[in-house]
Design a protein around this nucleic acid. Structure first.
Lengths: 224, 224
DNA sequence: CCAAAAGTGTTAGTCGTACACCCATGT
DNA sequence: ACATGGGTGTACGACTAACACTTTTGG
């Protein structure tokens, strides 16, 4: 590679996150209002440009922290967006990551919202998004649907455990279909990915529900 | 983004391919001998640097054609490699693509080999590879195992059809396990991804075997 | 006509799905 | 005590897995 060839100049890496949470059965995504050009004032996914001296995931986590204050978050690659004209300033290849976070981080942002330009919005009430972020978000939703069915990604939504009625609502919200309560429980248990705890918690009903947790270091197993 | 910030300078994109074929039950990968530094004389996956005016996949196809003469090939993203020091010259983020090609392209390369520095090698007889390509190839093998089970990626190995004994050997070679002939046939047919043709072909046996083809535009269905 | 691999069918067991009743709690 | 959602078991059908015999060809 000839480093001086102008066709190799002026390239950069965008790191882009589609961070989801589920709040009372409603799936929401984290977006921010852009302070500067291009697309000043418009909403976008949490994203930014990678420094040349940091790992990709570190760069994305830095951007997320700078722009929303949220730290310590699970992110996994889901696609690459490389259209030549996807960014007006210069050639930027976008590395798109999927995240899912728990109640604690959700409420943290809700409280600090006045001082930030970040917000959680329902997927049904999205404003127009800058760059190709609408496209990226669509793809992220598809991949999220696959990964909740094929992997234990939801452990990051419930680091402290979950009840069956609660997590069933999440599956139903994201997959847009309903499940029989009894069969849902059996199937999730049969994956071997989760285990019962001695704790209970009230959710919708009056009777407290058992709390389950995801086991560590599980092989991926099909759920549905 | 401040384009002049030195931390955004001197970044580039590597496009990297792990291109497989299966030859008489042996899985092979396409590698080339490097003509220039860094790693001059060493073997590597087929890869190169992306121009700033081309789509990612176009850039990778250009590199593959320049270095091996092989064209018209199926490639799909499987991972991103972003370690800061993975390339000695400057910061290069590697976009890794998985390919699988048919006999015709395999033999094309075998014939032009004297004039090129590319070769197909069995996964059991790999030389040391430049950069982080050994790591990338390991990941590619894992992803290939998943994708032959979950998608119709093998249609690109058999654009003109295949016989059951033949494709069963491919599954057994890549997944490193054996299947019952009768159940294998039933399961592959039950995915709905393939259909019988009126053609036959001899493979191992004396009795000719029916040729099947992958249907177009199928949804992904689990095979195993 | 024999060897060698291709093609097919039947059965048992397992898993998924549909469905009804009891339990624990708050009011 | 009753209303509300949480927890459990069973029976039927569908799919998976184990397994043996017939067919087609080349030598």
């Amino acid at each position: 590679m000839d480093v001086l060839n102008p066709r190799y100049q002026n390239q950069g890496i965008h790191v882009i996150s589609a961070i989801f949470t589920v709040d009372k059965g409603v799936t929401k995504v984290l977006i921010i209002r852009r302070k500067y050009d291009p697309y000043q004032g418009m909403w976008s996914l949490v994203s930014g440009s990678l420094y040349n001296d940091e790992e990709v995931l570190d760069g994305l986590k830095r951007e997320v922290k700078e722009k929303t204050g949220i730290e310590n978050i699970h992110l996994e690659l889901f696609d690459v967006f490389g259209a030549v004209d996807r960014s007006p300033a210069m050639r930027m290849v976008g590395l798109a990551y999927l995240g899912i976070v728990d109640k604690e981080k959700y409420h943290f942002l809700k409280e600090t919202m006045k001082t930030s330009d970040a917000d959680w919005v329902s997927l049904d009430h999205l404003p127009p998004l800058a760059f190709d972020h609408a496209l990226i978000l669509e793809k992220a939703k598809e991949v999220l649907s696959v990964r909740i069915r094929k992997t234990d990604i939801l452990k990051h939504l419930y680091p402290n455990g979950f009840t069956m009625p609660e997590i069933q609502k999440v599956y139903e919200s994201i997959l847009k279909k309903t499940f029989d309560r009894r069969n849902f429980r059996k199937k999730l248990l049969s994956t071997g990915m989760i285990e019962e705890t001695s704790r209970v918690e009230k959710f919708d009903g009056k009777k407290p529900a058992k709390i389950y947790i995801f086991k560590e270091n599980m092989e991926d197993r099909d759920v549905f």
